[in-house]
Design a protein around this nucleic acid. Structure first.
Ligand SMILES: NC(=O)c1ccc[n+]([C@@H]2O[C@H](COP(=O)([O-])OP(=O)(O)OC[C@H]3O[C@@H](n4cnc5c(N)ncnc54)[C@H](O)[C@@H]3O)[C@@H](O)[C@H]2O)c1
Ligand SMILES: NC(=O)c1ccc[n+]([C@@H]2O[C@H](COP(=O)([O-])OP(=O)(O)OC[C@H]3O[C@@H](n4cnc5c(N)ncnc54)[C@H](O)[C@@H]3O)[C@@H](O)[C@H]2O)c1
Lengths: 213, 213
DNA sequence: TCCATATTGTGAAAGGAGTTACAATAAGCC
DNA sequence: GGCTTATTGTAACTCCTTTCACAATATGGA
């Protein structure tokens, strides 16, 4: 199995390769890609080696082919449907974002307890009441959900999601949720990210350049 | 120097300890805290040992004292001022968020190229034109900035920030920015997080429970 | 056609990070 | 006051990640 760090890097490669491809670049060496994404070329070659061997010596990798291979490996050859719970500040920002589609990810519906949050303001994704959630997940075979509700509701929402069949959760609430072992939870903790910066900036002496996930 | 993973965990401990303290808990063992945050108790003890030795055998740690020590270690004993560049979808979500203050972080101003983004809609933080940015950073001695502009503007914004004296950047744009070695850049890449979930959920067999940063 | 060389793929080395295990010990109880 | 025991702090170990280094090799040019 590929490690979670490696998967994150594969996703980063994919995005950069898509951009390169769009600007007409057909071949790229691990060195050049490494410069673009800020990652050691040997690391890139090793990550790609998990998926097979499709570089050409003295030339590099075909951008088109590599994007296809990475999409396949990551499981986004066909669009992945995702739902969102909590159409507040963060939730609405996600609903308005057009960039996920290009990465093969589609937020297909949102759910919110508050009726006032249910008019689509600008974005075309519907916001439903909570009691539609379970059925929607079942009928549309949704496996991944984003939690963007207040911390005190996160566990309850997670429990509902899991019992409806959700297998992966991206949690914006700054609190650990407990789920069965077969469910994967990933956290986005922005306050932590900022505190991390505060620490490394405050520690004044010269140090490592980048803090990358 | 403490590793970036350890710093992230210290921040997580701090938040949970604050919650515990608020609900009247005065002492907590590494085991109990570990259960709450989902982290191995030995890991917690080791992380705390970086900062000194202030647990009490057979009792655990004093929540009050530990919050103070963690705040000190992370550099948030006094409120840290942060600026935001790009008051779009994500930027406005951050500006509306009340939760940073509790962690000792204060977004004091935002900057946007678009005049239409400059009315404070609900949030009290001012949104200024870009040409005020340099002076503001200098005068208010800001060291940390959040980039929430489109990818194609991110490098330009980063260059401006760095030349004005910014030392740490939290970048929401899904693109690597190049900065001098003394500047720290941290990335929030939501598409990557979702793709990672897609991968681990798709790889159907039984596997590790959580993907934590 | 043959050569010089840029680049891959990977084995080995180095460097962390996380976990286990346990001796030390202070607290609370009898 | 002494004993039992929960809990810390840390040393040792294991596991995992990243980097280094280089042989293999396909390409493009002469
Ligand atoms: N906004 C930010 O910049 C930011 C930053 C860091 C962390 N967060 C975290 O992200 C989460 C969301 O933040 P926000 O600023 O968007 O909050 P918000 O209050 O604006 O939005 C929360 C939404 O969740 C809905 N909700 C509440 N309980 C619910 C439930 N049980 N089921 C479904 N919906 C429910 C509310 O109606 C509301 O629309 C919070 O946990 C917050 O701590 C936000
Ligand atoms: N919204 C999301 O959910 C989301 C998700 C993933 C990534 N992102 C990334 O976050 C960034 C912001 O996304 P968004 O949805 O908020 O975009 P947005 O277009 O809503 O907002 C961008 C803002 O930046 C301003 N801006 C543009 N160029 C600028 C410049 N040179 N200086 C200052 N301000 C400038 C624009 O006026 C606008 O207000 C993008 O890079 C996007 O790819 C957003």
């Amino acid at each position: 199995m590929i490690s979670k760090q490696a998967i994150a890097r594969l996703s980063i490669y994919k995005r950069s390769l898509q951009l390169l491809r769009e600007s007409g670049v057909e071949q790229v060496s691990s060195q050049t890609l490494g410069r673009i994404v800020g990652i050691n070329p040997a690391q890139i070659r090793k990550d790609l080696a998990y998926l097979g061997s499709f570089g050409v010596k003295k030339v590099g990798y075909n951008t088109d082919r590599l994007v296809a291979i990475l999409s396949q490996a990551l499981g986004v050859t066909e669009v992945q449907k995702v739902i969102l719970v909590g159409a507040g500040n963060i939730g609405r920002a996600l609903l308005s974002y057009k960039g996920f589609a290009k990465q093969g990810i589609n937020i297909v519906a949102a759910f919110d307890i508050d009726p006032a949050k249910r008019h689509g303001e600008g974005f075309s994704i519907p916001v439903y009441p909570l009691d539609k959630m379970r059925d929607f997940i079942r009928k549309s075979q949704i496996r991944i959900a984003v939690i963007a509700v207040p911390a005190q509701s996160a566990q309850e929402v997670a429990d509902n999601l899991v019992s409806a069949g959700i297998r992966g959760i991206l949690n914006f609430a700054p609190i650990a949720v407990s789920v069965p072992p077969e469910v994967i939870v990933s956290y986005v903790n922005l306050a932590t990210e900022l505190e991390r910066l505060v620490y490394f900036v405050s520690a004044t002496d010269i140090r490592k350049t980048e803090v990358r996930r």
